Amino acid sequence: MATGGRRGAAAAPLLVAVAALLLGAAGHLYPGEVCPGMDIRNNLTRLHELENCSVIEGHLQILLMFKTRPEDFRDLSFPKLIMITDYLLLFRVYGLESLKDLFPNLTVIRGSRLFFNYALVIFEMVHLKELGLYNLMNITRGSVRIEKNNELCYLATIDWSRILDSVEDNYIVLNKDDNEECGDICPGTAKGKTNCPATVINGQFVERCWTHSHCQKVCPTICKSHGCTAEGLCCHSECLGNCSQPDDPTKCVACRNFYLDGRCVETCPPPYYHFQDWRCVNFSFCQDLHHKCKNSRRQGCHQYVIHNNKCIPECPSGYTMNSSNLLCTPCLGPCPKVCHLLEGEKTIDSVTSAQELRGCTVINGSLIINIRGGNNLAAELEANLGLIEEISGYLKIRRSYALVSLSFFRKLRLIRGETLEIGNYSFYALDNQNLRQLWDWSKHNLTITQGKLFFHYNPKLCLSEIHKMEEVSGTKGRQERNDIALKTNGDQASCENELLKFSYIRTSFDKI
């Protein structure tokens, strides 16, 4: 039985969820670079991206490699990797027998973001014989899940209580170790020597080791999670996991709180800001991140802002960003909400898709409305799209047979046209069989910064309504002859009103 693990408890099935942008060198404390989270699957090609990484700022997932063999891993080693800020997950990587050479110096898994409450997941690794993470000293947050690894031993010899604050939620089941077939031998045991430290858990006094050649490092209890030197002297209180010299914040392997210019500090002093819960960055760093993602459509890219001495992905609820200094300031009234469309555009074809934009005031991208039916549609669209004030790209209304009016965009005031449909149009209306009105132009103002209007096959939309939009939106004169079809717009509506004058002759039985 794995020490510190839980057996036999019912657990939810383990679901495996399925960018080499360097964020800056980590400095003297770390020998390499800070790398983003990685999802490495199918083959070993991307694994080489770990070569210079000291910190993975995010998670590391290595999974679904069915053609790899043990010899493929023999020359692979990433000794610079010290810390993973989120979680480490391995799933069905064939041929991998140990992690001792792959990650010989991995010391800390912070667990800032977890995989279903777990910071370390080893699942269905069919050839893994031992973990071998002999320098792993601290899992700051989260638990361990090690399950269905039929060859995995050296679990009962690990004292997880020396690595985690609590072992109650560890789930370590259905491994070879369960069948008591392992016969784990710690260093020196074969020669009758006791080389590794022994600890007591559940009444068992057991030597602690990761492999037959690597003991588990056990520091004096007084050192807590700070770690200790090879001689057993406690590291500085700002260290986490390990250090090369005692009581020196510049000799830590990793930091308990924050890293700044080669030393570990309790908090980031001005003019620095907390970033990702582990390091200090200056304003320029946060500003660069903001600008890199301002026009990016890459998933996970955030326009970072500053709030409460932190550089964070977005302002919290009730705050909006001051564009001059990136500071989050309290909103006066309802907060603006910028919604970034991942692929640059979004099609609204149902109430469900409209709900995804609920509360958005600025759309960074283009909207395509293609709704053919739905219950209580006008009210639903207004509830979900009615706060949109600005669209950076274009607005396209296409084959939306259920629409009679666009009044559900009740606050839309600006279409920038930074991206144009077919390279020309910022407003595009095609084949809307029941569209009769755009907006009530006596109450609604709309500016279209650039781009043209396109109207074709809107049989109940009168040309007068379209011409009014040209005047109000500032697009009059931009359109070419064929942009607004004269014969297919309003051709099934009563669009022309003329005053009919009647004269009559009164007659009676005795007068003409």
Results as ranks from 00 to 15, higher is better:
154 Y>I: 02
70 P>S: 06
189 T>R: 07
107 T>M: 05
224 K>G: 12
195 N>A: 14
203 G>H: 06
296 S>A: 13
191 K>V: 02
207 E>R: 09
297 R>L: 11
228 C>N: 03
207 E>H: 14
294 K>V: 11
236 H>V: 04
141 R>E: 05
285 F>Q: 08
324 S>R: 13
54 S>L: 08
59 H>D: 09
131 L>Q: 02
117 N>P: 01
70 P>H: 15
198 A>C: 07
95 G>H: 10
155 L>W: 04
254 A>I: 03
68 T>V: 05
287 Q>H: 15
146 I>Q: 01
336 P>Q: 15
248 D>W: 06
288 D>N: 11
166 S>V: 09
203 G>F: 11
295 N>W: 15
91 F>N: 04
143 S>K: 08
300 G>P: 11
204 Q>F: 13
170 N>Y: 12
298 R>L: 13
67 K>L: 09
109 I>R: 00
188 G>I: 12
174 L>N: 08
102 L>A: 05
313 P>N: 04
192 G>I: 03
263 R>N: 15
28 H>F: 10
141 R>M: 02
323 S>P: 14
305 V>C: 15
111 G>T: 00
316 P>D: 04
288 D>R: 13
40 I>M: 12
243 C>E: 01
155 L>K: 01
44 L>V: 09
156 A>W: 12
99 L>S: 01
96 L>V: 06
78 F>L: 10
177 D>V: 07
145 R>K: 08
171 Y>V: 04
42 N>A: 07
58 G>M: 00
160 W>L: 05
318 G>H: 13
214 H>Q: 13
86 D>H: 15
213 S>I: 12
273 Y>F: 11
116 F>G: 02
235 C>F: 01
279 R>E: 10
298 R>Q: 03
312 I>Q: 13
87 Y>G: 00
216 Q>T: 01
58 G>S: 01
285 F>H: 13
195 N>C: 13
223 C>L: 00
71 E>P: 12
202 N>D: 12
209 C>Y: 00
259 Y>I: 13
133 L>K: 00
177 D>A: 14
213 S>P: 01
97 E>K: 14
307 H>Y: 11
69 R>K: 05
99 L>R: 00
226 H>C: 15
103 F>Y: 02
34 V>H: 08
167 V>R: 02
314 E>S: 10
243 C>V: 00
105 N>K: 08
